[in-house]
């Protein structure tokens, strides 16, 4: 399917790549309409995701087409603009919008190609919307461990550790920016603190501390998923609204082009 899509794109681009018929057809108009059609098709991907019926190919197939046609749109755009930045106000706005869309698309392509791999390498595969639930479950279990520690050994070491470090760490997503750059420095430091207090614990608390260490790691992985999945969702908060703005400006551009194609009075 991917190969077929690539061949289709190449077929469409071939005449432009080799400059065929440039001398005797209005390539700007042709490439403009082609570009508009491609942008509309690219925009329809979001609609397809909302539609559960009819089954218009798999979403992964749509994503492949979205990527290939997105690359095609960039090439057609270069032909349409002859690689030059326009000088008119509206055209500059349109040019900037399309460039932003291309940058956004390339950024999204990078995210969709890199984030899933990193997610599968750390922790559980979780649904983004369930992360608060799992975070709460971890927090509940940590609080149970701390209470158990107080009851069985009358030691306050783990309780103090909880109060000093874990309470804040478990109460919400933490270290989002560090997770975006794949840094585990904070969690290492936290676990190191826990291990440093290990020598003061009795055997029972050491068992509990070991479980705490696993839970800290689990929470850190959860934060990692939250940060990275959140970035994927946050990117769409830019890409999709910009798509609508681009379409509106494109329509205005087409209206003006045709309105001003008429000769003078």
């Amino acid at each position: 399917m991917s190969i077929a899509a690539l061949v289709l794109v190449l077929l469409m681009l071939t005449p432009y790549v080799i400059g065929y018929r440039i001398a005797f057809s209005d390539v700007v108009v042709t490439s403009g309409w082609l570009l508009f059609a491609v942008v509309v098709f690219l925009s329809s991907y979001n609609l397809r995701k909302k539609l559960t019926y009819p089954p218009l190919l798999k979403s992964s197939t749509w994503l492949q087409m979205h990527i290939y046609l997105g690359i095609a749109a960039m090439v057609i755009f270069l032909f349409h603009t002859s690689g030059k930045v326009p000088t008119g106000h509206l055209d500059i706005a349109l040019y900037a919008l399309f460039t932003l869309m291309v940058a956004s698309g390339l950024f999204g392509f990078y995210l969709t190609r890199t984030i899933p791999t990193t997610l599968s390498s750390r922790g559980n595969e979780v649904i983004f919307e369930r992360i608060p639930l799992f975070r709460r479950q971890i927090k509940d279990r940590v609080e149970q461990i701390i209470l158990q520690s107080i009851e069985q050994s009358a030691s306050s070491i783990l309780a103090e550790f909880y109060e000093s470090y874990l309470m804040y760490f478990l109460s919400g997503p933490r270290n989002v920016l560090l997770h975006l750059v794949r840094s585990e420095r904070t969690s290492y430091r936290l676990r190191h603190e826990l291990r440093e207090s290990d020598r003061y614990l009795d055997e029972q608390d050491k068992v509990l501390a070991a479980e705490l260490d696993d839970l800290i790691k689990l929470k850190d992985d959860l934060d990692f998923h939250y940060a990275r999945q959140g970035l994927l969702k946050l990117w769409l908060f830019f890409h999709i609204p910009m798509t609508l703005v681009l379409l509106i400006f494109l329509v205005a551009h087409i209206v003006l082009i045709y309105a001003f194609t008429y000769g003078g009075s």
Binding site: I254, V255, Y258, A259, F260, T261, Y262, G263, G264
Partner: peptide, 18 residues
Amino acid sequence: QVCHQGAELGFGSWLSMI
């Protein structure tokens, strides 16, 4: 307006000109 009739007719007519 020297070259484009659209400039003479104004915004209201641009859509209908298509």
